[in-house]
Amino acid sequence: QTLRFAHWLPEQHALPSTGFKEWTESITEASGGAIDFQMFPAQQLGSAEDHFDMVANGIADIAWVNPGYSAGRFPISDLLQLPFVVSDTLNGAAAATKWYQQHADQEMDGVVMCLIHGHYPGTLHAKEEIRHPDQISGMTIRPANSSIANFVSELGGASVQVAAPETREALSRGVADAITFPSGSTILFGIDEITTYHIEFPMYSSWQALLINQNAYQQMSAEQQDVIDDHCTGEWATRITRGWEEMEREGHEQFRDSPDHTMIELSDEEMTAWRDAAEPLREAWAERVRSAGHDPDSLRQDLEERLSEVDALAD
């Protein structure tokens, strides 16, 4: 059985070239060649925002989906997208996968939630020194996702929507003053030449889920389903993201070591100020989840316990 695997990263990106490759090859091997894959990278089968519907409708059999792209649709998973939730995204991926496997069927129809993972935490990269959340007021930020966009407007700043390849231009010409991004990708897009100040503090991570079309899963033999199940675990969530994680972390360390870059160490007070500034976002999240008919407190508690167990909770 050949499965169509759709994602929206370029083929050469660290995740498809390490994690996806390892995962798909391992499944093919474990199934004795019964399951193999046809990769459709770079939005070849549909736009990044449509990847959930693509896998739910069988356009793709497997899709790598950012639930945060469909605002309001997957409120539970939004908890992960908020700033200052997960500090260690590698072990956090395992905890988050076990957490979201419990809850995904309350908000995702037609799919099997295989695993969910983030990337090495992104932070704020700016052209000048930013230490305190109050400084964001009056600035224009290119946000990484809609949670960060909400955060920016919460802080009194403006967001500007620029596609990743055009971001460098936007920053160098003053359309934007700062950007939230994982560090390695900052280098990848040449943004580091302009933003030389980086906050040494895991701010956020964008979380993406690997989803399998329900029918495609049910049509598999019991043995094949077992193979898939063995690859939809917390351990695999960590494993799939490791290569990308390293690429982003290396970028971060490069900034730390480079004389051209300033890594801003925040004082405890400043860190608390940032966390407090994000508190309204958590409250808004709780409100959304509640109105969708779920219990935000138990969801949050469940996630925090699981994250604490592997020492991945941001606190």
Binding site: A71, G72, R73, P75, S146, A149, N150, S153, A292
Partner: peptide, 17 residues
């Protein structure tokens, strides 16, 4: 209908889509 049931909204003002 799918979008209605999914409760999708805009990201800033949470207007229903």
């Amino acid at each position: 209908i799918t979008i209605l049931h999914a409760g999708q909204t805009t990201s800033d003002l949470q207007l229903p889509l």
